[in-house]
Each structure stands twice: as C-alpha cells, then as structure tokens.
C-alpha cells in the first residue's frame, strides 16, 4: 500500500518526533509513504486570515503535483487546509479559474486527501494492525485528543463524527490501551496563539488537561503538531499559572502505536517529549 506523503512544515521541525514515529509505524505495516515532491506550506491560518485566494492556491500548488494519487497527511492543520481548498475549488468553477490563474495550473480539486488515522483505521484496518502488536499497552489509560481540524467542519473533512470521533480511540484499543471516555476530544487548544497571545492557549489547555486528569487519563494522544506542542511544552506554564499539577505525558498517537509494535524509544523520538513519559511507561511495564 502506498500514498504520497505530505508531511507539512512542522514535521521537519518542532514535530520531527511525529515524523519519525509515523515512518516507524508505516515500516512495521509495510505502508509506503514516499514524499510528495517539492510540496510547499499549506498556508495555515496565516494564509486564510490574510488572503483567502492564496489560502486555496497554496494547497492547489502541492495537490496538483500529485498526479491523481492519494495524498497522506499527518498534521491535522495541513489536512484541514488541503481538504478545504479541495472543497472550495471542486465546488466553484469561477474560483477554480482564479486559482488556476494564480498557480499557473488548472487544478480540479480532485486529489484525494486522507489523514493517517483514516488510512490506518479504514484502509489498513484494525485486524491487520493487531497482527503487528507485540507489546500491548495494557493498563495504559489514554485520553484521545483530536483537536479542532480533523473532524470539523464535517462536510469538508468527512473524517468521523464531528462531536465524538473515535478513530484514534479504536487504534489505541487495538494497541491494547484503554481509550477513556471524556468530553474534550475536540475542544480547541488555541493553536498558533501560542506565539501571538499565549494567555489564550494557557486557558484552553488548562481546561483540556484538567478534564483529561479528572477522567482518569494517564496520558494524552494527539494527531496535530500544534496541539501536542501546546499541551506538552506549555504544560509547566499552565501548572504554574493555575496552581495545578498534571504531569500528563502528551504523545503523538503514532508514538504509542509504535511502542505497542515494539519500536524503540529512539525510533519514536520519545526523548523529544517535554513531559517525561518514561516513569509512566515503566510503571505500566511498557518502557525500556
């Protein structure tokens, strides 16, 4: 099975652990992820908040080079931008013509875009993944955190239930963990306000961490570089600001899945996590 991989900018920097663990998991499954050649930034919030046409043109530039192949995305923000551009361009002939003028290529909005969670759960399937689990995450209680952009808005992403997605929960259960029920799966972490107005992120991540803790989670699993960074790197700031103690490791779901598949800490870049996970993993008999 093979998809053209659109890693997105974060996966070559702050989220290189997401990148490494994605490739480690893919290798265990025989999933090939050759990189989409010369992909460029999806434009993120900066583009859609500045120039809506540019926000559709940047994804169109990358997706038009996919030659009709399905594009696999790890970052949920990239996923949202690529799918939104597809939705806009495929549904509006006048916009399609304007985007063609900007990009220099007439792109029809038809390159299929899938998130890794969709590929793992639907295309590969839990039965196949279960065959690769050599170190079940028994006793590990995981709060699966999807953030905003995988499931919303559903008519664009068509990902899963918009209020209660379960794809990541299914994967964690397949990996032997317990996916806890909790109400903050799709609450917002504040995203790029981490740089421009950190108080927004501190307030919102405090709500998320607090709810995960109250629901009995040992750790959080994420599918977005911004969510992960906000919940992990800012967790100490949140604890100081609100006088709480959470100590909740915040993994990428690929790191937890990779652990269950027997990948090493270094293959999964566990040392990149700010809230140390080793104590928790050892207490569950998973660490090494």
């Amino acid at each position: 099975m093979s998809y053209l991989f659109f890693p997105g900018c974060s996966l070559d920097g702050t989220a290189k652990d997401f990148h490494r663990s994605t490739l480690a998991v893919a290798a265990k499954l025989g999933l090939e992820l050759p990189e989409l050649k010369d992909w460029i930034c999806c434009g993120s919030t900066a583009a859609h908040g500045t120039d809506p046409l540019l926000a559709d043109a940047l994804p169109a530039k990358s997706l038009s080079a996919a030659g009709g192949n399905t594009v696999a995305v790890a970052c949920s923000a990239c996923y949202s931008r690529l799918k939104t551009a597809n939705h806009h361009i495929a549904g509006d002939a006048a916009l399609r013509a304007r985007v063609a003028q900007v990009v220099g290529v007439d792109y029809d909005g038809g390159t299929p875009v899938l998130h890794l969670l969709e590929i793992l759960c639907r295309d590969i399937g839990r039965a196949r993944i279960a065959q690769t689990i050599t170190r079940p995450l028994a006793g590990l209680r995981v709060a699966c955190y999807y953030g905003c952009l995988l499931a919303r808005p559903p008519e664009i992403t068509n990902f899963d239930d918009a209020e209660n997605p379960t794809l990541m929960d299914q994967l964690m259960e397949t990996a032997g963990a317990t996916a806890i029920g909790w109400p903050h799966k799709t609450e917002c972490c504040g995203a790029s306000f981490s740089i421009t107005e950190a108080s927004i992120v501190l307030e919102l991540t405090n709500e998320i961490l607090s709810m995960a803790k109250a629901a009995g989670a040992d750790c959080i699993a994420t599918a977005c570089p911004l969510c992960q960074l906000n919940l992990d790197m800012r967790q100490r700031d949140v604890e100081r600001r609100f006088g709480r103690r959470y100590n909740l490791p915040v993994f990428y779901f690929t790191q937890l899945l990779g652990l269950a598949m027997g990948c090493s800490s270094s293959e999964l870049s566990l040392a990149s996590l700010v809230v140390e996970p080793q104590g928790l993993l050892e207490s569950k008999g998973i660490g090494r």
Binding site: C9, I40, C41, A46, G49, T50, I195, T196, E197
Partner: peptide
C-alpha cells in the same frame, strides 16, 4: 499582533516554500 505574525509567516513561505 496576529497581522504581524501572519505577514512574517507568509513572507517566509513565499521565500522558502516552507515555514
């Protein structure tokens, strides 16, 4: 300061292609 952030972000994307 969001407009400043957006401008800096997009100018990097324009010049480098990626952030």
């Amino acid at each position: 300061t969001v407009p400043v952030f957006n401008d800096v972000f997009l100018s990097i994307v324009r010049n480098r292609g990626r952030v």
